[in-house]
Design a protein around this nucleic acid. Structure first.
Length: 319
DNA sequence: AATAGTAGCAACCGCACGCGG
DNA sequence: ACCGCGTGCGGTTGCTACTAT
């Protein structure tokens, strides 16, 4: 593959060629070897010292996004996707900040993921990416589904697309509690440590050891749709609902425990009034069906996003 | 089989910020 | 206060592989 090069004039110094474009294995080896011996930093000096005809920025980018040993490659797990959705709701396009909470993932990868997967869906729906409707669609459709999938696939690392060990996040407790007024008790979904769930039956403030996000839930869904789940014994959520003790109502929201991640309270509890997400989420018993989750959900989740949106057209949803 | 269109991703670019001289 | 340098970040581009026609 041919590479592009630029003639770069560096003041009074002699001109030299700076390579651009894709990195070759030889360049990668040079960079890896040099950093292994001398460490990171001073990228311009590093580039020269390592004998690379690249600028410092290029070396830094190559190392951080591709060569660094703890870089995690492969498809994003449902947990990671959920976290991205949540953190983006809170912080917007602060990719590096979001990446700090996804071990082994780079800001560039997350940014690409958002632009290619998430924004694609928004375009197809003719929804403004940062619009209220889009955010609500994320809250009311994608997040619940991701959570459902997390419950059904407690060990995402079993996915054939993953050869790396469990990420830090995957290894941590990941639970969801949905509180519904009609149920008078939380719905709790857990991926790894069901014993932890009891703590979520407490008010938020009392669950001090956990960092939580709160996913807004439209009134229409809370009052009329969640009970539908109970009517479908095959629903992933049915067991959790059925096991609730119906003893107390704490709040009308989703709690998402994200373990030890340093995620502050998510400000997603704004009231939602549209009817759309409700119809989208549970229409035709889709949510309760047992066949909408594949075996390899971690790897194929977003491949099914198109199907996910097929229940109602945007104009029908009023979003 | 050939071509066009599209998606995914690596890499680049420009800007902003912090810091030391 | 100013300047230069190194670094980090978000947006954008361009290449390649894949898919549809």
């Amino acid at each position: 593959m041919s590479t592009v090069s630029d003639r770069v004039s560096n003041g009074s110094q002699e001109e030299f060629e700076l390579r651009r474009g894709p990195w070759t294995p030889e360049e990668d080896n040079l960079l890896i070897h040099y950093i292994t011996c001398h460490g990171e930093g001073r990228w311009n000096l590093l580039a020269k010292s390592a004998g690379l005809k690249r600028n410092g920025k290029s070396c830094r980018l190559r190392w951080l996004n591709y060569l660094k040993p703890d870089i995690k490659r492969g498809n994003l797990t449902p947990q990671e996707q959920l976290l991205i959705l949540e953190l983006h709701s809170k912080w917007g396009n602060r990719w590096s900040k979001i990446a700090q909470h996804l071990h082994g993932r780079t800001d560039n990868e997350i940014k690409n993921y958002w632009r290619t997967r998430v924004q694609k869906q928004a375009r197809q729906l003719k929804i403004e990416c940062n619009s209220k409707g889009f955010l609500e669609a994320i809250r009311c459709v994608w997040m619940p589904r991701l959570l459902e999938q997390m419950k059904q696939t407690p060990s995402p690392s079993s996915s054939s697309s993953h050869s790396t060990p469990l990420s830090t996040m995957e290894a941590q407790n990941f639970t969801i509690t949905s509180l519904h007024p009609n149920l008078q008790a939380p719905l709790t979904l857990s991926c790894l440590q069901p014993s932890k769930l009891e703590s979520l039956n407490q008010p938020i403030e009392e669950s001090s050891s956990m960092t939580k996000s709160i996913i807004g839930f439209p009134d229409s869904m809370r009052t009329s749709q969640l009970p539908d789940i109970l009517e479908h014994p095959t629903s992933p959520a049915h067991e959790a609902f059925g096991n609730s003790d119906n003893s107390s109502l704490v709040n009308d929201c989703y709690y998402v425990d994200i373990g030890n991640y340093e995620v502050e309270d998510f400000n997603l509890l704004s009231p939602m009034s549209v009817e759309g997400p409700r119809d989208l989420l549970f229409s035709d018993g889709q949510m309760a069906g047992s066949n909408w989750i594949g075996d390899d959900m971690a790897g194929t989740l977003w491949n099914n996003m198109d199907e996910l949106w097929q229940f109602r057209k945007p104009e029908e949803l009023g979003i």
